[in-house]
Amino acid sequence: MTTAAPSVVTVHVLLFASYADALGVDTLDLTLPAGSTVGTVIERLRALPGGDRLPLKPLCARNLAHAAAGDALVAGDQIAVLPPMAGG
């Protein structure tokens, strides 16, 4: 018996600081087609109300480490969208 590959992935998205203010939420789940990338998350976020205040290519992290827009998503990933850092 074979199991068909899932056709979608659901990821948990975290928004911070000015980006959370822009979208009015700090967490949301997104269900995307299998094969989607970190960049797909950004495209979806930018289509939401207030999402046009996000840059085209914001810094992102996947599961607590810096990520590239082309990184493929795995179901259950935690994708954080990071405003310009201002520590120190």
Partner: peptide, 12 residues
């Protein structure tokens, strides 16, 4: 300190 300012997700 330079890497903290560049890489660590902290906002002010």
């Amino acid at each position: 300190i330079e890497e903290v300012k560049r890489r660590v997700p902290i906002w002010k």
